[in-house]
């Protein structure tokens, strides 16, 4: 069995912006091991989020091969890709993107509603994940009743609850104070080390990158190993 969770080979992504063609990623190769915590850094516009979107199946490459968890994503139809995403990828957004009218519990439950699972099993799973992120006592709070750090924990719980092998995080600490950011990074490291999750995190913050096993810099569509 291949030990890599992510295998990108010659991946390029280009799109039209007005009359010009922009190529944020060009012939990019990347391998990420199962259970590895990878930080992606780089200046604005370097293609970090584009790469994250490709890895999570939200976007598709213009050329090249992208194999995630043993699946060649190019083979999937749009519908299959949506289903695959719900089972294999947990997405953590910078601004959490929680549903404001739902409680923390209901937000975390959302991904499980897509899979055939009994209500009892679903509720146990949601409670255990909320306990894992330290919010077992906040399950009935709505996002507006939580702090930024707590909201991000709920978002992480939501990304984790369907037990996907891959977590992608787009600047998960970008909108948090230092203490909250540290707790989130500790949690991500714990998820990688103790639960074997493969994590790819985009960040601008070198301190956040230090939490990762490996850091790569993306510049002009190419990846460079950090010194």
């Amino acid at each position: 069995m291949n030990d890599n969770m992510i295998q990108c080979t010659g991946v390029s992504k280009s799109y039209r912006r007005g009359s010009t063609t922009v190529t944020p990623l060009e012939k990019l190769d990347l391998s990420v091991r199962r259970g590895e915590f990878l930080a992606l850094m780089g200046p604005s516009g370097s293609g970090k989020t584009t790469l994250l979107n490709l890895l999570s199946g939200i976007d598709s490459p213009t050329e090249g091969s992208l194999v995630i968890a043993g699946n060649e994503l190019a083979r999937f139809s749009r519908r299959e890709l949506t289903k695959w995403r719900s089972q294999h990828v947990g997405y953590i957004f910078q601004l959490y993107h929680l549903v404001p009218v739902l409680s923390a519990f209901e937000n975390v439950e959302l991904p499980l509603l897509l899979s055939p699972m009994s209500k009892k099993e679903r509720h146990e799973r949601v409670k255990s994940v909320l306990d894992l992120v330290g919010l077992g006592d906040r399950i009935h709070h709505t996002p507006s009743e939580l702090s930024g750090g707590q909201e991000q924990r709920v978002a992480i719980a939501r990304a984790l609850v369907a037990a996907p092998p891959l977590l992608v995080a787009d600047e998960p600490t970008g909108d948090l104070d230092r203490e909250s950011a540290r707790k989130i990074l500790d949690l991500l490291r714990q998820l990688s080390r103790e639960h074997g999750k493969t994590i790819v995190m985009v960040t601008h913050d070198p301190r956040a990158a230090e939490a990762a096993d490996r850091t790569l810099h993306l510049e002009k569509g190419q990846l460079l190993e950090a010194a």
């Binding site: 949506t82 993107h97 549903v99 959302l110 939501r158």
Partner: peptide, 13 residues
């Protein structure tokens, strides 16, 4: 729009 997009990212069609 963003909320709907996030739900799609989670796996909702």
């Amino acid at each position: 729009v963003k909320e709907m997009a996030a739900l799609q990212a989670i796996g909702y069609g």
